[in-house]
Design a protein around this nucleic acid. Sequence first.
DNA 1: GTCTATATCATGATAGAC
DNA 2: GTCTATCATGATATAGAC
Lengths: 195, 195
Amino acid sequence: MPEIAVQREDTRTLVLDAALKLFTDRGYFATSVHDISRTAGVSVGSIYHHFGDKEGLARALYTTLTARMLQLIDEIERQMDSSHDRARELVTRLFVLTETQPQAMAFMLYARHREFLPDEPPVCSSRPFARIREMVSRGMARGEIRQMDAMVASTCLFGGSIRMITARLDGILPHPLPTYLDEVWTCAWRAVAAS
Amino acid sequence: MPEIAVQREDTRTLVLDAALKLFTDRGYFATSVHDISRTAGVSVGSIYHHFGDKEGLARALYTTLTARMLQLIDEIERQMDSSHDRARELVTRLFVLTETQPQAMAFMLYARHREFLPDEPPVCSSRPFARIREMVSRGMARGEIRQMDAMVASTCLFGGSIRMITARLDGILPHPLPTYLDEVWTCAWRAVAAS
DNA sequence: GTCTATATCATGATAGAC
DNA sequence: GTCTATCATGATATAGAC
C-alpha cells in the first residue's frame, strides 16, 4: 500500500511545497496564485478548492510549520533534563534545520506574517516561543539561570542564535551554521548563566 | 537662494513621512501610491515626479534612514573610547529611538527590504552593520572582547538587544525598552567580555 | 512643480464543464 | 476533485492642462 501512490503526490502537499518555496524566495505579495499553480503543477481551481483563498494557503503553511516546531520542542524536553542541555540542544537542532530546510526556517522566523496574516499573533508570541520562555523560567527557578525578567532572559539566551540564523538565511555567513555552534553557545550561556 | 518656505513643508519630506508611516503600519505591498497621496496631502503626479516610481520612494526612505544611523554611530565613536562604552551607548540610543521613532526603527530592521528593494543588499550587510562589526573587531584587538569569529561576536553582543527591539515593536513588551536596559546590557556584555 | 483624469495590466477569485 | 476560461477590481504609471 505505501508505494502505490508514487505516480502523483498529494495535491495539498504539492501546493504547500510550492507556496513555501515561492513565498520565501520572492515574498508573499510578489507571488501570484498563478505562479503557485505553475510551480506545483496544479490548477488554480484546485488550489482555491483546497485552501479557500490565498490567505488560507498561507495560514495552512503557518500552522503546519508551527506544529512541527512544537513537536521538536516536545522531543527535546523528553530527552533532556536541565535547562542548559535543553537550550543547547534546541539551538543545535535549529542550526541543522536551517541548513536542511532553509525555507521552512525563513518562513517561521523571518516572514512578516503580520502583513498577510493579520489575525495571527506575532511570531514571538506564538506557542513555540511561549514554550521556550517557560523553559527559561524553569531554569531560573532551578537556579541554573540568573534571576531576571523572563522575557529578557529568553531573548538574551536565544537572540544571538536567532540573529545568526537570519544572517545565514541572508547569505552573509560563509560557513554552515553548525560551524559556529560552539562559539555561539558559549556566548549565549555566559549571557544568562547563574555561575 | 533659500526660499523661506515655512508656509508649506517640503513636498518630499511630506511624502517620505507618509510613506514611512503607511509602509510600517500596513506593509509596503498593502500600501498603494494613492494611499500615500491621500495621507501626505500631495497628488499622485507629484509623487511620481519626485521619486520616479514606488520603488524609488522606498529606496529614498531606505537611504535616508541608513544615513541617519551612520551619523548616530559616528557621534558615538567621537564621544566614547572603549568598545564597552560605545556598544552600551549604542544600545541605549537604539532603545530610546525605538520609543520615540518606532516607525523608523521598524523600517530599518524589521522590514523585508529584499522583497521590494531587490537590488539593495540585506540589512545585516548594509554599512551601519558593517561599522558595528568593525567596532567589535577593535574590541577584540584591544583585549576587551574574547577572541572569536567577528561575526559571531557582534551577533551575540547585539542579538539580544535587537530581539528586544523587535519584540517591543510587535507590542509584546509591557514596559518601554529603557526599563530593561540594565538587565539586557549585563547579559550582552557577559556574553562576549574577556574577563 | 502640482494637479486631475485616464490608460494599461496583473491579480485574486469564480463559473461551470468534466 | 480537477480543470480552463473568464470576470471584476484595483494597482502602477502616464498624459497633459495649469
